[in-house]
Design a protein around this nucleic acid. Structure first.
Length: 419
RNA sequence: GCCCCCAUCGACUAGCGGUCCAGGUCGCGGCCCUUUCAAGGCCGUCGCACGGGUUCGAAUCCCGUUGGGGGCACCA
């Protein structure tokens, strides 16, 4: 089967995560069948166009690793073709002039129906279809005319789009029939909603691809998560590589009911992907992300710190909270030191001339110090952790101290003990 | 108002008439491990919206109700 699909965003802003899911289904379908995936910008409504949007959309797709075939096309470039097609419909008696606009004559008896690849048969009574404007008074074609015409001209075989287009489909089908072209297969995939079942919007959290990137999600994790919103290969598998998604994807298994976006599950999955990275890949992702976010932290030190936090993070943006103490001076909250004075002193003494100064020897020295005071590890190490890292939550204490170095460690222990 | 779509644990879903007193994953709760936090291991909690049919048999098929969503522009 030859397959050519298209994604047709309008350049009105950042790529919305719900749109990305539809994008992904198109992409998976095309790649699964070894077909083509086109990118088309629907920019006939120039008044709503945002200047940077076209670039941002492409940048987001590149980041997600969703590649398209051929060059990007613009609906506006086919304005004349649309006009000509409309005039032909007028000549054929299938459309008529109305107040300077050209209006399409919809059938008013019977039904318009199609076999939707995800929903099965869908029917619309024709008397509910109004004669729609093909070309506006100012000569610009409308979406419901330009879009199906472009599908025809581009030889699109499958139109895979979100369910809010269902009611446009009978209109577009009638237009395509009127120009005597072959109908594509339509597949209406379910919408993605927010946690309250309502349309996903700002108040639910991140919605733009750029925001997910900023939050420190890995593209592979996001893609895996999105693929599972409205599609499942079986009831068991959740973690799938891109190749596996491509191999297993089919429209038949796309659900017809809407899904809710669950940030908690995304976080879990992102953690799974981060832990699965090789040590240097993880460090690389971290360094890249920190750079994008404007941190000027030493890359070598980040590389050394990475292994200490790899299994603790669900998102890259959690890194600074864990590791800030290695890159900047931090101060301990006296309340958190909680009577740890004796242990702080003992730790200072134990580390002062310890050789070698390694995680292993540090651990041995601190455990001995704790024993000397008759303290349980839990009680003993917490004040040290707070003094050294400035936080009750940190990477492994001994590794952290080794990385921080003797000088800094002693300085922080002394300062905390003085409080 | 009219048209269309949808309906299994809190969430994502498996289930396409018997193998389901409904399985997996996230979340949640508990326990274990443990220098904190995570991670990991084990156990557990929670669901077929409702009412009628069809059938020997229904989560699965049909009808209705209710509930949710989408659309009805010279927006896309």
């Amino acid at each position: 089967m030859f397959v050519r699909v298209r994604m047709a965003p309008s350049p009105t802003g950042f790529l919305h995560i719900g749109g990305v899911r539809t994008f992904l289904f198109n992409w998976l379908f095309a790649r699964h069948h070894g077909g083509e995936f086109r990118l088309r910008i629907e920019n006939t409504d120039t008044s709503r166009e945002v200047a940077e949007a076209v670039d941002q959309i492409q940048e987001s797709l590149r980041w997600l690793g969703l590649d398209w075939d051929g060059s990007v096309t613009f609906q506006l470039d086919r304005l004349d073709d649309c006009r000509r097609a409309a005039e032909q419909l007028v000549a054929d008696g299938k459309a008529y002039l109305d107040d300077g606009a050209i209006r399409f004559r919809m059938p008013n008896e019977g039904v318009t129906a199609w076999d939707d690849a995800v929903r099965g048969r869908v029917e619309f009574p024709n008397d509910s279809l109004e004669d729609l404007v093909l070309v506006r008074g100012d000569g610009r074609p409308t979406y419901n005319f330009a879009s199906p015409m472009e599908d025809v001209w581009d030889g699109i075989t499958h139109v895979i789009r979100a369910e809010d287009h269902i009611s446009n489909t009978p209109k577009q089908i009638n237009i395509i029939r009127a120009v005597g072209a072959e109908l594509p297969v339509y597949a209406h995939v379910p919408n993605v909603n927010g946690q309250d079942g309502k349309k996903l919007s700002k108040r639910h959290g991140a919605t733009g691809v750029d925001e997910f990137r900023k939050s420190g999600y890995l593209p592979d994790a996001l893609v895996n998560f999105l693929a599972l919103l409205g599609w499942a290969p079986d009831g068991e598998t959740t973690i799938m590589s891109r190749d596996e998604l491509v191999e297993r994807f089919s429209l038949e298994r796309v659900s017809s009911s809407p899904a809710q976006f669950d940030y908690a599950k995304l976080d879990w999955m992102n953690g799974v992907y981060m832990r699965a990275l090789a040590e240097d890949e993880f460090a690389h992702a971290l360094i890249l992300w920190l750079g994008e976010q404007g941190y000027e932290w030493d890359a070598e030190l980040v590389r050394k710190t990475a292994p200490l936090v790899q299994e603790k993070l669900a998102r890259l943006d959690e890194f600074p909270a864990y590791a800030r103490f290695l890159f900047e001076d931090v101060e301990a909250d006296p309340a958190d030191l909680d009577g740890g004075g004796p242990m702080l002193a003992a730790a200072t003494a134990a580390l002062e001339s310890l050789e070698p100064f390694t995680a292993e020897s540090i651990e041995a020295a601190l455990r001995a110090a704790a024993d000397g005071l008759g303290l349980k590890p839990r009680q003993a190490f917490q004040p040290v952790r707070v003094a050294v890292t400035g936080s009750k939550i940190s990477p492994g204490l001994f590794e952290s101290i080794e990385l921080l170095g003797r000088t800094q460690t002693l300085a922080r222990l002394t300062r905390a003990a003085a409080v």
